[in-house]
Design a protein around this nucleic acid. Structure first.
Length: 260
DNA sequence: ATGCCCGCATACTGCGGA
């Protein structure tokens, strides 16, 4: 089975590119982030024409997460237990969608950006990741299905995951508390599954400043697996080709290969 | 080196993205 994650940065602007990629990539399950639309606006038909069912959670023009699957999709959850909201009073955001596809529990995740270290959004980001860790504790029990946490984490786990660590000093995505929040996922039994197969590669390049042709990117799209999921991973790849050309998302799709 | 930012919204400017 092949499972991919892709921050599509608006599904309505990119549906042709995404479904064309799906059809030629032999991917069974695609987790999408930043669909930027409400449920009723999601272009379901092109996915169905390609042989995929789609579940989507979108509340407005921001965020939005989806899962397309050609191996079934059931037990859909539009948030993880304890997922915080944003603002005062806290408002729900469409940043997590769980579904079981082909026997694997898949969570499509769009972690809050954090904006700046001094911004309340940064506090929200850290709280969001802590709540996810608490929920994930329950997903490593022996009776839980193999679980994958995939998406746009908005954290570069290591200095080598950004094109210039000096550029990011004092900015979000690279701070110790953000990185510690990912390590905490490993402490409850999850493993990052893509790095071992994609050393030295990035998943995101800013639209500005010729970042992509200059190869100035970041690794922020990651896949964490529970022990029973990690045991089935036999490969991973970042499809850098998809970042090229007119109409590309600023993120590339990341593909996981499982021996199931 | 696959190209000098993009998408959205009661829209001709501001916001969020990272």
């Amino acid at each position: 089975m092949r499972i991919a994650t892709w921050n599509v940065n608006s599904i309505r602007a990119r549906v042709d590119r995404v479904t064309a990629w799906l059809e030629r990539s032999d991917v069974d399950v695609l987790a999408m982030q930043e669909t930027k639309c409400k449920d009723a606006q999601f272009p379901v038909l092109p996915f169905e024409a390609a042989g995929y069912e789609v579940v989507h959670h979108g509340l407005n023009q921001w965020n939005g997460v989806a899962i397309a699957s050609r191996v079934g999709v059931s037990d859909v959850e539009p948030a993880f237990p304890g997922q915080p909201g944003w603002g005062e009073p806290a408002a729900a955001e469409a940043r997590a969608l769980g579904a079981t596809c082909g026997g694997v529990r898949v969570w499509s995740l769009y972690v809050p950006n954090g904006r700046e270290v001094a911004d309340p959004h940064y506090v929200y980001k850290l709280g969001w990741l802590a709540a996810l860790r608490d929920a994930a504790k329950e997903w490593t029990s022996p009776d839980a299905p193999p679980t994958l946490l995939v998406g746009d984490w908005n954290v570069a786990p290591r200095d080598e995951d950004v094109w210039d660590p000096a550029f990011f000093e004092g900015r979000t995505h690279v701070t110790a508390p953000e990185r510690d929040a990912l390590t905490a996922l490993e402490d409850v039994g999850f493993t990052e599954l893509t790095r071992a197969y994609t050393e030295g590669q990035f998943t995101y390049w800013d639209y500005t400043q010729l970042r992509f042709p200059k190869r100035q990117g970041m690794r922020i799209d990651l896949a964490y697996g529970s022990p029973s999921a990690a045991a089935h991973v036999v490969g991973a790849a970042i499809d850098r080709e998809e970042r090229k050309g007119k109409g590309a998302s600023d993120h590339a799709p990341v593909v996981l290969e499982l021996d199931t």
